[in-house]
Design a protein around this nucleic acid. Structure first.
Lengths: 134, 134
DNA sequence: TTCTATGCAAATTATTTGCAGCACT
DNA sequence: AGTGCTGCAAATAATTTGCATAGAA
């Protein structure tokens, strides 16, 4: 039995073909796929899964914290496998490439800033839109 | 002649009732209104402006750099008057309150991080989702 | 068998666009 | 008259949901 099988069971989700396939796709394609993107990968593999199912499964995975949803600019969400290490993203506006990064200094400042105002952070979202230095 | 009149002309936009009214609304309500929100304010004032016009005008203002569009989580964009000073946002998940802040340290690190990877920042987006410390 | 999951189409939400009429120069 | 602006309704794009049926435990 694979890890994916276990993950699904732990999440109280039945082990079905669409769910396994979607986990597999996210685990491979260095993550960062949109629902539509996952759907296309499925079609490419010749697998018949409805787009609605893709959305449903991704949402379930998000709830189960198996994947994380990111709302980049441009109106469509992207999903990636959840990992214990938090990180933020940099998106190249020319190539669309997504680069992950983590910066301790920034994380610390974010908490300080919130605390200075009497708040604590429940979540945050930081995306740098960048272009290659010529 | 008001500043708003001038701003519109400078942007090559004719001075019309919907445009003036929308500028006024954004200038007042400490900004951060969604298109729908602006539309509701208009209706409250008893002004008949179509929702489509609100969207059109906001988009024109964004292009003219009179307002800035922010894509917060939750699927709807919010607009605020453009000001020369850049800042980021903190959104209280309990009250929905939006707090602006600016942190030099974070801004500097963002540029360093991008540069370390061979990129330069064209734009960025940072939102802290927070809740009050009890 | 008993629930849960899936597919498909219809429904929603947020936003955009086509088009005919009105307004300002 | 000419060009820009508006409202309304229809069109899109992304995502969700209702429902009858197929599938997992």
């Amino acid at each position: 039995m694979t890890d994916n099988n276990l993950d699904l069971k732990k999440a109280g989700l039945k082990v079905t073909f669409p769910r396994l396939k979607i986990l597999e796709i996210l685990a491979t394609n260095d993550g960062h796929l949109s629902a539509e993107g996952v759907y296309k990968k499925l079609l490419e593999s010749g697998d018949e899964v409805g787009l609605a199912t893709v959305y449903r499964v991704l949402t379930q995975f998000e709830t189960a914290e198996l994947v994380v949803r990111h709302n980049f600019d441009g109106g469509h969400a992207v999903f990636e496998m959840a990992s214990d290490d938090h990180h933020d993203h940099m998106v190249c506006v020319e190539t669309g490439k997504v680069i992950e990064f983590f910066d301790e200094q920034i994380e610390l400042r974010q908490h300080e800033i919130a605390k200075e105002r009497g708040y604590e952070i429940t979540d945050h979202n930081m995306v740098l839109y960048v272009k290659p230095i010529k």
